[in-house]
Design a protein around this nucleic acid. Sequence first.
DNA 1: GCAAGGTCTAAAT
DNA 2: TAGACCTTGC
Length: 534
Amino acid sequence: MGIKDLLKFVKPHVEPIHIKKYAGKRVGIDAYSWLHKGAYSCSMELTLNMEGDKKFQYLNYCMHRINLLRHYKITPVVVFDGMSIPCKATTDHDRTRRRNENRDLAMAKLKEGNARAAVDHFQRAVSITPAMAHQLIQILRSENIEFVVAPYEADAQLAYLSTLEAGKGGIVAVISEDSDLLAYGCPAVVFKMDRYGNGEEIVLNKVFESANRMPSFRNFDTELFTGMCVFAGCDFLPSVPGIGIVKAYTLVSKYRSLERALSILKFEKGNLMPEDYSKSFKEAVAVFQHALIYDARSKSLKQIKPLPEKLLQDLDTDLDFLGPEIPQSMAIAIAEGKLDPTTMEAFDHFPRSGVHLKPTIQNPTSDGLLQLEATILPTTDSCFTVISSQKSRKEIVEVTKQNPLMEESKYSNEATELEKLVRPLNAQPTEDNKMSATNIPLKVPDNNPFRKRKRNEVQLPDQAEIASEQVPVLTEIENSQMLYATPESQKSLDSKPINVVDAQGRAKTDKARRSNWQGPENKRGSILNFFSRV
DNA sequence: GCAAGGTCTAAAT
DNA sequence: TAGACCTTGC
């Protein structure tokens, strides 16, 4: 949920940007926001743990975006959520309840034969499991992409990384959909990044300094901003009835002190306020400012900012609201993606998993983040292959179909039976997916926007589009391997002639148009625009 | 009239 | 999860 109505409220401070502005920089990614969006397209397959490769489509989504960043020479740092924080238990419980309700409704609709309505509920039922995150982590490892699993909230970890210099593992901005990042004081957040790299950016310092945009935050600092967010209602604490973002802003803006704002609120809304609101409020603000994060350099948990002694006395409580302390070995294993933070079981203990990590060959980079090597053990029941071009070698990451992608589902036995009800929605089973259902390895992710496609994979633009814009269409033909975009591969692609399809569908070679063609709506001849159509 | 709260819809492919 | 739109309450 994040902070209620915060993004709408700060809209005047939002700037449209393209992600390429961060070329050469390190940018943090809230992995769950991408996993969640990616899971939308395969929610039913995931919920029912169905046979076939479609349930891995969320990986395609994530890797497509990571490749997009790499294309623009941005170093992605992917951050995953870890354990559930105690004061978020109510929110988590509500979400689980809603998902379960939707899953039950989806199953009921499926049994009625109403697959379309079922899909609608499956989309609301989808939840991102640590096992799904682990699938992505394995690809990130094979691709040498930095990642870290936060001990608790990924947002807190991202906010912490934003405070560090690049040389120490720091990042300059975060890509997310969660307004909580702003409450954590994250200096630059890119929201709503689309598949071309367009997004909306909020830079907190600009918000505080802006003189001519309303609402003005000129008298605010990070603490007051966080306080406003908590007053407005957040995942850790619902707002007092009658208090929304506007009143929260007015309160903080007027009294310029959270303590005073709290007193006034108590005076005005005392009868509507829970007994312990003041304490809960201070704890919620403390979570945003002093959350537990993983420090990769010291390989230990620490607070984003140490809790001041005065606040400790004020709260007069233990610090479990920040999340219980855990042994260092466990914190490391979670951060490195080896331990499921919800069950505390090792990920590579999955039965018949083909992925085995060599813990002794960790290569901490200068920033201390993870760049692990995966040892690949070919197995006969693998269904998952990644070929990395970046390291000019072929790696096969094997994941067995028996991996518990999903939480143990009471529906898994029904899935096969129900698949035939679902079929009308999907294409009839092809030879390919028949094969994947019988343990033939399939390639995942087939998501590279820069991959050269075979002719029969190329989709031509519709006639109306051709007529109005004369869109150049890439029809390069090559026996393609799974290639991730690298600056080198991109350069080589750019230098080759391309085939352009004209309005009559005739193909003609046109090297010049790759760089010269300019269309409407910023559809310049960038390689991205080509691939948006391929 | 304004702000909060509730409901509906889109998202990805 | 957020935005749009509508309803409700002060």
